[in-house]
Design a protein around this nucleic acid. Structure first.
Lengths: 246, 246
DNA sequence: CGACTCCTTGAACAGCGTCAACCGTGGTGG
DNA sequence: CCACCACGGTTGACGCTGTTCAAGGAGTCG
C-alpha cells in the first residue's frame, strides 16, 4: 500500500522558501531581494506521469520544482527511453530554460509535483547579473561533473553497482533537503525508471533488487527505501568513487 | 606506417588564432581585444600519452588545446578507465580550470599536442565580464547536452551503434575545424581508447571494427579513417538522434 | 468484478567479456 | 644486420551478465 502524502505548498515569498539554498537563484536572492518580491510566480500542481516540458520546445516558462520528483529523459525512435537524471525539490526543471533555445530533452513528473513557474523572458532579465552568471557557471560545472559520474557508471560498472550507487546518490541529495528519516526515505521510482536510468531492463532490475533484499542490504517496500546495511552496500560499490548526485 | 605530421604552431597574437572560434574566449576577444594583446601566454608541446592535468589537482594554469588530440578520463580503483570525452583543437583542456577547485577528472594527451597555457588567476580575472559569463553558461549547456547524448549511447545502444556514432560525431567536429579531407580524417585513437570511451573492451571493439570494415562502411588504416559508406553507417545508427560532438 | 499497473519468476538466448595464443610492425641495442 | 621486445591488433573458445519472451500473481481502482 502506498500512501501519497499531501504535498507541501511554497510560502508567499520566494525569500522565505525552505528550498532557496538548492535553487539557481541563491546569490541574487541574497544580494537583491527586491527583485524577488516583485517577481510574478505561478504555483501549479501537476499529477504524476504528466510531461512538463517536451524536447524541441522553446521554453516560455522557467519551472523550479518545489515538491515531488521529476526526471529528464530522451526517447529513441524505437520507443526506448533513457532517463538522464532525477530532479529533486529546489532544482530547476531545466537550467536550459534560461536560454530561448529548443530543449534537448523532455521532463516528466514522476510523482505528483508542485512547480513554481516564472516567465522565462522576465527571469532571464532578472538573472542578468554578473555574480549570478558566475553562480550559474558553477551550477553547470556540478551538473557536468555528475554527468561524468553517471557516464562512468554506465560504461564501467555492473548492474548491482549501478543500482547501489543510484540509491546512495539519491539518499545523499535527500539528506541535504531533510527528506530522510534515519536511513529511510520515500522512493517513488518504479523498477522501469531505475532500468531506464541505468541502462538496464526492468526484468533485470527486479532480479538485482531481489538479490539486494536477500542479502539484507536494503529494505524496499511501499514506496519506501531503507538502507539496512550501509557497510554492505558500500562494499558492493567496491570503489571510493564519488556518488552521482543528480 | 603512420606518418606523424609536424604540428602547427599558434600565431604571435591570440587575436589571429585560426581556432579562435572554438575557444571559450570568443565574445571577449571580439569586444575587448586589448585584453588579449596583453595576456601572457606560454606555448608548450607535450608528447603523446603524457598526463596534462590530474584529478584532484587545483589548476594553476588554463590550457587551450591548439593542435593534436587529448581526452578527459577517470580511473576506477581497479585500474579500469572511463574516457569522458575527446578534446579537439580550440577547446579548453578544462573549463573547470576557470575555478580554483579540484579537478574531478584527469586529462591526457592522445597524440603529441600543442597547448597554450595561461595563468589561471589572471585568466579568471580577464574573463570576469558579464557577456563572457553568459557565453560560458552557453558552452556548458552544450557540454551537458553532449553528455546526455553519450549517456544515451552507453545506456541504450549496441556496440556497433556506439562506434558508428563516435566516428560520425568526431568527423563532424573535425569538419568544423577544417581537419578533414573529403570523407577522410586523421584518427589517432587506439582500439583501447574507443573501448574505454564507449564502455566496451578492446577485444570487442576489434571485432566490431572488423565487421564494419567487412561491410564496407569504413576504411580504417594507418591512423586514418574514411567514411566509405555514409548511408550504410547512418542506417546502423537506426535513429535520427543527434550525434555527440565532444 | 474486470482492467490496469507493477512486480516476479523461469527458460532460452545473445551480446559482450575474458583468457589466451598469435601476428605484424617498428624501434632498440648488441 | 639481426635478435629481441613492446605495442597494437586479430582470432578462437568459452562463459557470464544481462535480455527477451512469456506467464502468472498481488495490489488498486472504478
Amino acid at each position: 500500500m502506498r500512501i501519497s502524502a499531501a504535498l507541501p505548498r511554497p510560502p508567499e515569498s520566494c525569500l522565505e522558501c525552505p528550498i532557496r539554498a538548492f535553487t539557481a537563484y541563491l546569490p541574487l536572492m541574497d544580494r537583491r531581494p527586491e527583485l524577488f518580491r516583485a517577481l510574478e510566480r505561478e504555483v501549479t500542481t501537476i499529477p504524476a506521469r504528466r510531461v512538463i516540458v517536451r524536447r524541441g520546445d522553446v521554453p516560455t516558462k522557467v519551472f523550479t520544482l518545489f515538491a515531488g520528483w521529476a526526471y529528464r529523459y530522451t526517447l529513441l525512435s524505437d520507443g526506448r527511453r533513457q532517463i538522464l537524471s532525477f530532479i529533486l525539490p529546489g532544482e530547476l526543471i531545466s537550467l536550459r530554460a534560461l536560454r530561448a533555445t529548443p530543449m534537448t530533452f523532455s521532463v516528466q513528473a514522476l510523482t505528483e509535483v508542485v512547480l513554481c513557474a516564472f516567465d522565462a523572458a522576465k527571469m532571464r532579465a532578472t538573472l542578468n547579473d554578473p555574480a549570478e552568471a558566475e553562480y550559474l557557471v558553477d551550477k553547470y560545472m556540478e551538473i557536468c561533473a555528475e554527468a561524468d559520474l553517471r557516464l562512468t557508471d554506465l560504461g564501467r560498472r555492473s548492474a548491482t553497482q549501478r543500482v547501489a550507487r543510484l540509491m546512495l546518490g539519491l539518499e545523499r541529495r535527500l539528506v541535504a533537503r531533510g527528506l530522510t528519516v534515519g536511513d529511510a526515505f520515500e522512493f517513488p521510482l518504479r523498477q522501469e525508471h531505475i532500468a531506464d536510468a541505468l541502462g538496464l531492463t526492468a526484468v533485470h532490475v527486479s532480479r538485482t533488487l531481489s538479490a539486494m533484499r536477500e542479502s539484507g542490504a536494503i529494505v524496499l517496500e511501499g514506496g519506501r527505501l531503507t538502507i539496512a546495511d550501509r557497510r554492505g552496500l558500500m562494499e558492493i560499490l567496491g570503489d571510493g568513487e564519488p556518488l552521482a548526485q543528480r
